[in-house]
């Protein structure tokens, strides 16, 4: 069971996969850029997270897309339907919290 709110690195991984499947390094870069280098996913952290998310059915391993660069074949990960729903619920929750916080602070 993934608790709610979920760990920030999980949220970021799901978010990174929202637009298109990515491989491990792609996820790492995406998260790094989105968080302004605030979350740097080192290998063990990233792959343990991926393992958990996969077990919970939020993401799935997929084949490399056709237009992937002519690299060795890497393992790609994609968001599942459950994962997308979960991401939406999670971001709704965070949005509610942010609104509440802004109301308090204004």
């Amino acid at each position: 069971m993934i608790p709610s709110p979920m760990k920030p690195q999980w949220f970021q991984i799901l978010l990174a996969l929202a637009r298109a499947p990515l491989h491990g390094y792609g996820i790492q870069r995406a998260v790094l850029e989105r968080t302004d280098a605030g979350i740097r996913l080192w290998p063990a952290m990233l792959y343990r997270s991926l393992a958990t998310l996969e077990e919970e059915g939020l993401i799935a391993s997929v084949a490399a897309p056709e237009d992937a660069p002519d690299d060795e074949r890497r393992q790609y990960y994609a968001l599942t339907r459950t994962g997308r729903e979960r991401l939406r619920r999670e971001s709704d929750l965070l949005a509610r919290w942010v609104r509440a916080a802004e109301a308090e602070l204004s």
Binding site: G24, Y25, Q28, P43, R74
Partner: peptide, 9 residues
Amino acid sequence: EMERLFTDV
């Protein structure tokens, strides 16, 4: 996979 990620990082 982790080893690859390590070299990339």
